[in-house]
């Protein structure tokens, strides 16, 4: 059975003035469905770049990247946006909630890109908020929530479309220990109970310990890959 995410010779090159920056360099990686993978490494090692490529919000300079059998490099920007909306749930370090929308409306946003009826949207949003334990805060605006609650809303937004893959960029980086644990427990539960495939960037070994596999990157290459030790 082929992997859900297949990277072959994946390279990303930026140019800053005359300087060439190569955050990913000929990287090969497979991520199987239903696994929780943590990406670790020093700043500039390419972990966030890899995450962005898998999430379809950035494009590789060379190499191939197949997700769910789709070659992302072959998609136009419009096709890629549509693919993201249906395949990926993204959790940002700083939550990236829309401040003028309530928790409910923030979670509902990705569903507006689908053909769901209002009733279907309501059912899905309510279920997602219930799952992250914020059903009673559905009408709160982001400014009325704590950091941990905001991240849980962001998580609900990421899972509301029932994507096969959830990518998380330092999801606990801005949270205190208790809130971080709550988020990591939720991510673990998503894998265990719903069979989601998770890819998480983190600097925190405690966060990485929640994953099945930890991949260490340096200078755009994998330097170590091992099963996580809880």
């Amino acid at each position: 059975m082929s992997a859900l995410v297949e990277c072959r010779g994946l390279t990303r090159v930026y140019h800053k003035g005359d300087q060439e920056i190569r955050p990913l360099d000929e990287l090969d990686l497979d991520v199987d469905e239903g696994t929780f993978t943590a990406l670790m490494g020093p700043s500039g090692s390419g972990k966030t770049t890899l995450l962005n490529l898998v999430a379809g919000i950035d494009r590789a300079t060379s190499g191939t990247l197949r997700v769910e059998g789709v070659e992302l490099g072959a998609l136009s920007n419009t096709e890629l946006a549509r693919w993201r909306a249906h395949t990926i749930g993204y959790v940002f370090q700083l939550y990236h909630l829309v401040p003028v929308l309530t928790a409910y409306e923030n979670v509902e946003l990705p569903l507006l890109l689908r053909d769901d009826t209002r009733r279907e949207r309501h059912r899905k949003v309510a279920a997602a908020l219930e799952l992250v334990g914020l059903a009673d805060r559905h009408d709160h605006f982001p400014r009325q929530l704590s950091g941990g609650q905001e991240q849980r809303v962001a998580l609900a937004r990421a899972i509301v479309t029932d994507p096969r893959i959830i990518v998380a960029d330092e999801p606990t980086g801005d949270l205190d220990a208790a809130a971080a644990d709550a988020i990591l427990d939720l991510l673990g539960a998503l894998r265990r109970e719903l069979g989601k495939t998770l890819l998480m960037v983190t600097h925190d070994p405690r966060a990485a310990a929640h994953a099945d596999r930890v991949i260490h990157l340096e200078k755009g290459r994998i330097v170590a890959a091992a099963a996580a030790t809880s």
């Binding site: 919000i57 419009t78 946006a81 993201r84 909306a85 993204y90 990236h96 829309v98 946003l109």
Partner: peptide
């Protein structure tokens, strides 16, 4: 963020 979510 809206673009990342998939809005054109």
């Amino acid at each position: 963020t809206l673009r990342a979510l998939g809005f054109a």
